[in-house]
Design a protein around this nucleic acid. Sequence first.
DNA 1: TTGTAAGCGTTATCAC
DNA 2: GTGATAACGCTTACAA
Lengths: 363, 363
Amino acid sequence: MDKKPTTAPKGRQQPRVKIEDVARKANVSPATVSRVLNHPEIVRPELRDRVMRHIADLSYTRDSAARALKSGRMRTIGIIVPTLALGIFAEGVEALQNRLSESGYTLFIANSQYDQRRELQELQSLIERGIDGIVLVGGSHERELRALIEQAAVPVITTYVSKAVGGIPAIGIDNESATREMTDYLRRLGHVHFGAIANVVPASNDRSRARLDGIQRALSEAGIPLKPTQIIKADYSLAQGRSALRQLLNDHPDTTAVICTTDTLAIGAMAEARKMGLAVPGSLSITGFDDIELAAQMDPPLTTISVPAAEIGRGAADYLINAISGSPVPKSVLLPYRLVMRASTAPPRPGERPVRRQQARDQ
Amino acid sequence: MDKKPTTAPKGRQQPRVKIEDVARKANVSPATVSRVLNHPEIVRPELRDRVMRHIADLSYTRDSAARALKSGRMRTIGIIVPTLALGIFAEGVEALQNRLSESGYTLFIANSQYDQRRELQELQSLIERGIDGIVLVGGSHERELRALIEQAAVPVITTYVSKAVGGIPAIGIDNESATREMTDYLRRLGHVHFGAIANVVPASNDRSRARLDGIQRALSEAGIPLKPTQIIKADYSLAQGRSALRQLLNDHPDTTAVICTTDTLAIGAMAEARKMGLAVPGSLSITGFDDIELAAQMDPPLTTISVPAAEIGRGAADYLINAISGSPVPKSVLLPYRLVMRASTAPPRPGERPVRRQQARDQ
DNA sequence: TTGTAAGCGTTATCAC
DNA sequence: GTGATAACGCTTACAA
């Protein structure tokens, strides 16, 4: 490790060039320079050009702190994600940032590690920074959060869910409806013996909760409600997908379809199935959620729900930019998901599994 | 899509509570309130408590723009990553953010999409925002970048590489040495027929370039230099890992070891090998780089290089915090990587290959 | 059309 | 130990 210590360059040593310097060089008043920058159309073209030249010459840039102080606007948005480790959030953040950048906004990022207490602290810190808008994930938050946001009078939007909760507008998909649809699809394939693997740890993850609800309701309505032991609770790691499948099949060897609330869990489940010598989808259908890049590349490719993360990010940016400028904004934005049927699902094959199926589907 | 438009709440409508309000309520001068906040130890305890109570009562928070204007410090760091889609960057960013948050700093995030021109623009925007420090990735940048940074007199550090380039200190691993070690390891296993799959698209990716260099140099020194057709250039997608392996084996059917500069490429290569009926590691050894979560979960688990992304992020934070405060900082920080030997590598089995290959093709 | 000048909210430097 | 006061760099009435 190269540790030769040198003294760091201390902050701005050369005093920053300011508007007054430009004004002096251009022989105009600071106000004119400011106008050239902010309302070029009201400055005489000839003068404007001269000023602009000097601005470029001195490579002058405005001090954003001073601007913010004067205008009350930071041109800054904050986002708090549970974690960046999940590609789905990373993708949304990236899209958000790109769109904001186009509009001259900059993005503060913070992460809560799925800890609502910490989310509140980060929000506090963001608000103190004077952000003009805030992006959250999901609808499950600490009590104080709403008061904090209201007091700061900062526009807010929550993402990856579709229903406004507690007055906070949302942009995202209907998670419950998505897993309902997935469940129905599997039912139509002929499956009767289901299992669910859900990343409902921690409990604050309301997206996964909704996904699990969708599965449970669809099956209840179909008259084959899930028993508690048919629901394996996990976090979002691949390893837990593995152990969850093992546990599920241990308790319910007749399972023919496993619905996971996350691709990562599904991929773990697939890996375990392979290890157990179970053919997918021959002996066991497995489904995921999110449609991460890897899903399509699995062997077999994973049937899953595609979540429009980039659109969510862009939409959140647009929402906030409009809200800040006082433009009309929707109460919430429901984005479509897509059920992507690939090769990890198929009709169950009666007879081939330990347990008899009265299934009528042909192969 | 729920589109009922409502009028957005416009910016701060209630005037923000300021230091003067607290001062009036507490019957002290604004200066005292400021001191309570910034140097509590020099204020009479009794007075201090009273002021603090009123601060809490009004839930007063300091205006960061005004503070920044006065102090010249924004307590803000910026980072520009090529993309957030790569887990390795997301992990580093998260660690960076966590450490900064502990120290009262907030992180601006921007992404360049591997476009150096865009990196420069984002940097410009960050500097205008008055950031106190900047984190970059890699050592390959636009010409103007250095001048910009120097002029702004902002401490900077580049990450995921270990050598300071052009006066910009670095924190990360020695990528070239890592692949060298990987290559040597495979050589010791007995491999002679190598192939490399490198994500050297786009060319600005100097980390991958260094990784490829490591492979090439190690093999040159061993007297078995790689032919151009033994090097497949790719981007960083799994799909390209697949096609790269196919092309490689097409041109060089006798290949027994494939070194990839990225886990994702390696996983793609493994998937393709399986599809071609090639046993890994029996017929073909495959290695990755990064040690993403999935690597250990593959079947077989992937031999790879573990990159300490979280340490890089934390280290970058510490570096900048020290640099900003004028504390001594190292010229660069070389972090150790780890060669993680798992089951995707084994000694070559001469003679067994050609036959299998044919069988695989015919299927 | 351009210049003058008054703040924006905070903190540091002075007096007291 | 505490209070008045003067910046920090910019924008915008208002005046010219």
